[in-house]
Design a protein around this nucleic acid. Structure first.
Lengths: 139, 139
DNA sequence: ACTTGACTTCAAGTTGACTTGAAGTAGTAG
DNA sequence: CTACTACTTCAAGTCAACTTGAAGTCAAGT
């Protein structure tokens, strides 16, 4: 059992962020000691997953969906697989970007427009589209 | 030569965004026809690169640095290579996330904490840290 | 019992990346 | 020449994801 400062120290996540995450339903405290929140240690891996999900470009709402917002042990496996596929597509795009950057660092062609590497990069870029959702406090 | 609505139609980027991008120095118009901006067609690939850079999680300021803010043909090659390496590290993280998601979709172990796949995921997640910069209009 | 200080809530502020709206202007069709 | 419409500027608004600040509470040490 951890209080918020212990959790903050262990995870490196500021207390204000932890309170915010609880407010929007990303993590849960199991009770109070007086006023103070009491957390179970298993929020630590959960926080790691949240950080990773953010690094992957997911919104907090999407992450909440992926992790399961409540004490549900059975999360939707199809949805997880779909998310994995989405991340995989993202990786493909980033690979194109990386290659494009490396190419730009070495290519001395007069016009990038004529370069096949650059053209491939652009084709992939143009298939992109973004969608975002809104995060609202749970209750 | 394109006016803003043509550029918007060709690129799929709303005109308001194009004006904003010009304001912060991501793209340039080469002049005016009356009030109206006139763009060169080569902003199209540039817009594609901007979108790709965003997909990669870079801020507009970072993207401006990568692409070169002005009509400089010689952008810093070492910096580009460094950015490519940064993207590559990001890809590694995302690969871990993807694998983690796939694993979570199939693993039925009672506690994820005991699972080596999950532990690897977490190790990578914990090495993350983020930094952001501010975007200000040029001039 | 009293002080201390880390916790609490709640509202408001911040940042990046845009969008929206009002008010004005200018090239083109009739 | 007059209208129309698509452009223009500029200020303000929005949204996600937090942070900050004020004012209050409470457990623990002296």
């Amino acid at each position: 059992m951890l209080d918020i400062s212990e959790l903050s120290r262990e995870s490196g996540v500021p207390a204000s962020k932890l309170r915010y995450y609880e407010e929007v339903g990303l993590i849960r405290s199991i009770g109070r000691k007086g006023l103070r929140r009491v957390f179970e240690p298993d929020v630590l891996p959960r926080l790691a997953l949240i950080a990773l999900g953010q690094a992957a470009g997911f919104s907090l709402v999407e992450i909440r969906e992926m992790l399961g917002q409540e004490k549900e042990p059975s999360i939707d496996r199809n949805m997880l697989a779909a998310k994995a596929d989405a991340v995989d597509r993202h990786i493909k795009e980033l690979s194109a970007l990386r290659d494009g950057l490396r190419h730009a660092a070495t290519c001395t062609a007069p016009s990038h427009l004529e370069c096949p590497t650059f053209q491939r990069l652009m084709r992939i870029a143009l298939t992109r589209q973004g969608m975002r959702k809104k995060v609202r406090p749970t209750r």
